[in-house]
Amino acid sequence: MASSSSKKFDLNAVPNVQPEIRCSSFLSQKGLLMTNDSVMLDDAIAASVAKWIITLQDEKLLTNRTDVEAINDSMALSIQCASSVSNMARRLQVRRNEVQELRTQVLILQRRNRGLQQENKELKKLVDSYANDLGKKYSELEMNTNRLREQQESLLLEV
């Protein structure tokens, strides 16, 4: 619903006013809500303020409007507020999904880690077992080699 008036609502036109604390119970990402803060100009402020509450700055912007313009601007504000809340909800949902996916990945990695630790223990046992067996076989081979040398030497002496 476009206004038939030639005046356009400029969201960037903000009068220079000394800021005052609007309401100490509303906190935005920037701090306390001030009178020069605008839910029309800042999504973070819009998300911090309830759906139908507007700041003094917004009231000043709407005062010089005709009824039709004020209704259209109020509808635009309501749409912006709803859109801002909807966007924030989507962002939170995306973040929630990312966190859930990361938790799932952490659980998978923890399970793999436990499996690898168990496999490492089994491999260490095998390596230790092979080392012990090879040590025994080496000792036997060394004893057999010594015996063969002694027998070879005794044969050479006999010949």
Rank of each mutant, 00 (worst) to 15 (best):
residue 111 R to A: 15
residue 82 A to I: 03
residue 39 V to M: 02
residue 92 L to K: 13
residue 104 T to K: 12
residue 69 E to P: 01
residue 57 Q to R: 15
residue 64 N to L: 14
residue 55 T to R: 02
residue 50 A to V: 04
residue 106 V to E: 11
residue 111 R to W: 03
residue 113 N to G: 05
residue 50 A to Q: 11
residue 57 Q to D: 13
residue 81 C to S: 11
residue 99 V to Y: 07
residue 90 R to A: 11
residue 99 V to M: 08
residue 88 M to H: 10
residue 43 D to K: 08
residue 84 S to M: 02
residue 47 A to S: 10
residue 103 R to A: 09
residue 55 T to E: 01
residue 53 I to P: 00
residue 65 R to V: 09
residue 60 K to L: 13
residue 110 Q to F: 05
residue 80 Q to S: 00
residue 104 T to S: 13
residue 78 S to I: 04
residue 102 L to V: 01
residue 56 L to R: 14
residue 38 S to D: 03
residue 85 V to W: 00
residue 60 K to C: 09
residue 54 I to W: 12
residue 76 A to H: 11
residue 39 V to D: 03
residue 60 K to Q: 13
residue 34 M to G: 09
residue 57 Q to I: 08
residue 90 R to C: 07
residue 63 T to F: 15
residue 101 E to W: 05
residue 107 L to I: 11
residue 106 V to R: 06
residue 82 A to R: 00
residue 79 I to W: 07
residue 108 I to E: 03
residue 71 I to M: 09
residue 40 M to P: 02
residue 68 V to Y: 06
residue 58 D to S: 04
residue 40 M to A: 10
residue 75 M to W: 12
residue 44 A to C: 07
residue 53 I to N: 12
residue 58 D to I: 07
residue 42 D to F: 03
residue 58 D to P: 07
residue 40 M to N: 08
residue 39 V to P: 02
residue 45 I to M: 02
residue 99 V to K: 02
residue 60 K to E: 12
residue 109 L to F: 11
residue 55 T to G: 00
residue 79 I to M: 06
residue 42 D to G: 04
residue 43 D to V: 01
residue 64 N to E: 13
residue 87 N to H: 06
residue 81 C to Q: 13
residue 50 A to R: 08
residue 50 A to N: 04
residue 34 M to S: 09
residue 76 A to V: 05
residue 44 A to T: 09
residue 81 C to P: 00
residue 76 A to D: 02
residue 107 L to H: 11
residue 50 A to K: 06
residue 48 S to W: 00
residue 42 D to C: 01
residue 78 S to A: 08
residue 49 V to D: 00
residue 50 A to S: 11
residue 113 N to I: 08
residue 37 D to M: 10
residue 99 V to D: 05
residue 113 N to Y: 11
residue 113 N to E: 11
residue 70 A to G: 01
residue 91 R to F: 05
residue 101 E to T: 09
residue 69 E to A: 03
residue 42 D to W: 03
residue 57 Q to T: 09
residue 89 A to L: 09
residue 92 L to C: 12
residue 91 R to W: 04
residue 57 Q to N: 15
residue 95 R to E: 11
residue 109 L to V: 07
residue 96 R to F: 12
residue 87 N to V: 07
residue 47 A to I: 06
residue 55 T to F: 01
residue 46 A to P: 02
residue 78 S to F: 11
residue 52 W to E: 14
residue 66 T to I: 04
residue 63 T to E: 15
residue 77 L to E: 02
residue 45 I to R: 04
residue 35 T to M: 00
residue 68 V to L: 15
residue 87 N to D: 10
residue 44 A to K: 10
residue 69 E to M: 10
residue 34 M to L: 15
residue 85 V to L: 10
residue 37 D to K: 06
residue 52 W to K: 14
residue 106 V to Q: 06
residue 46 A to Y: 00
residue 51 K to S: 14
residue 43 D to H: 01
residue 56 L to M: 12
residue 55 T to P: 02
residue 73 D to N: 08
residue 100 Q to S: 13
residue 54 I to V: 14
residue 59 E to S: 15
residue 54 I to C: 11
residue 86 S to T: 00
residue 38 S to G: 06
residue 98 E to Q: 12
residue 64 N to W: 04
residue 91 R to T: 08
residue 62 L to N: 12
residue 49 V to R: 05
residue 45 I to P: 05
residue 69 E to H: 03
residue 99 V to H: 04
residue 90 R to T: 00
residue 60 K to R: 14
residue 96 R to G: 06
residue 86 S to D: 07
residue 100 Q to L: 13
residue 40 M to W: 05
residue 100 Q to W: 11
residue 84 S to E: 00
residue 75 M to N: 00
residue 112 R to N: 13
residue 105 Q to C: 02
